[in-house]
Design a protein around this nucleic acid. Structure first.
Lengths: 204, 204
DNA sequence: AAATAATACGAACGGTCGTGCTATTTTTGA
DNA sequence: TCAAAAATAGCACGACCGTTCGTATTATTT
């Protein structure tokens, strides 16, 4: 789940740690980070509760590790293909397209969005802080892609990157919401239409 | 929490039931519907666990009751003022304005949105069904207000009510998301700007 | 092959969970 | 005022929670 140096042979421990995180990801998609329990996770992985526990030291550290692992995957899933596109609108659209796919491929909810909702109103703590950082970082990625569009001349000079990033993000939230409740097909149609209208309106 | 006939004196039981639901609402705002526990709730209300339990018969029924109570409040909070506006754009804007306030007044998360995320990827069950119904109903309310705009002539004849309803809803999700993580002020600025641009673009 | 470290297990702890039961208290209607 | 009814408390249960600890097993290094 996390990226490991390809040079060194991953130790046994690191391998099972990834295995555990893989199963944890499956579970957290359905029950959220707060619904993740070590006992159920151990059962799914096929090892003892204490064995799983020993890999992380605490439930909270397990949740943080999972959060990081998913975030890394998420960013790579979207950024790598996007970077192959020329900077500007093409790249931004690639990002949005992959982003829209992410929730679909990893059907039944995105852990990162669930986490954002789970901790957005919570008291300060390591988990909320981590979520906040991830969301901030990702928003900045989005803004950077938008700024490039402006620099390249694909979007109007007076485009408000913050505002556009917010709107794109909101549409992704809408996609996730509707896909989870009403079905992906219609949700994706609406989202695509909205994105098109949005980008066109900012086009130079 | 729920509306009670003002004529009949509410029985003691009904009164404490509301009291319980009030406290349950406060708790669910922070921990979600799945984080709601009868023990903690009883402690907050100041009565015994079994005393609280007896009012609902099961945890699930408590969750359903809370869901209904919040939904009723939500719809009333928004619809009643909106209905005082003339049908058309004024009414639609009133709805959106109040909607944006809802998450702010009831700071730290909206139970209905949390529930939507909690159950959008879950297996079928009474809770998911209830959430689905509520979300469907509310979306229809929104569509109806949009359709009235078209009929009255405030919006273009070829306006896609489904599409516009989706986009407005998405912006409200964005508002909730950003307000919870980054602060209400900026989130509301972005939302208002987006709504204005959106409605203007559909205006006839 | 021996020594050492890493890894996993099993049992147990104190708590909390939701949920039944049975009393006891409180409210209600005649 | 008194009995019926409703509401609440008390207690116990089995299950699961995260966590700790000692021990056995397996990898890795010397």
């Amino acid at each position: 789940m996390t990226a490991t140096p390809a040079t060194a042979t991953p130790s046994k421990g690191a391998a099972t740690r990834e295995l555990i995180l893989d199963h944890a990801y499956q579970m957290a998609r359905r029950d959220g980070l707060e619904g993740l329990s070590i006992g159920a996770l151990a059962l799914a992985v096929g090892m003892s509760k204490s064995g799983v526990f020993a890999h992380f030291g605490s439930r909270e550290d397990l949740q943080l590790a999972l959060l990081d692992a998913v975030s890394t995957r998420f960013v790579e899933y979207i950024k790598l293909p996007a970077l192959k596109q020329p900077r500007g609108l093409k790249r931004l659209r690639a990002m949005v397209d992959r982003w829209a796919q992410w929730g679909h491929i990893h059907q039944h909810g995105c852990v990162l969005l669930s986490a954002a909702v789970e901790y957005d109103g919570r008291a300060d703590g390591p988990l909320r802080e981590r979520v906040l950082k991830q969301q901030t970082d990702w928003r900045n990625e989005l803004k950077r892609a938008i700024t490039l569009c402006i620099d390249v001349g694909d979007l109007k000079k007076d485009t408000d990157a913050d505002q556009l990033a917010f709107e794109i993000y909101a549409l992704m939230l809408g996609l996730h919401h509707d896909a989870g409740l009403f079905g992906y097909e219609e949700a994706n149609r609406h989202t695509t239409a909205a994105i098109n209208r949005l980008l066109t309106s900012y086009q130079s």
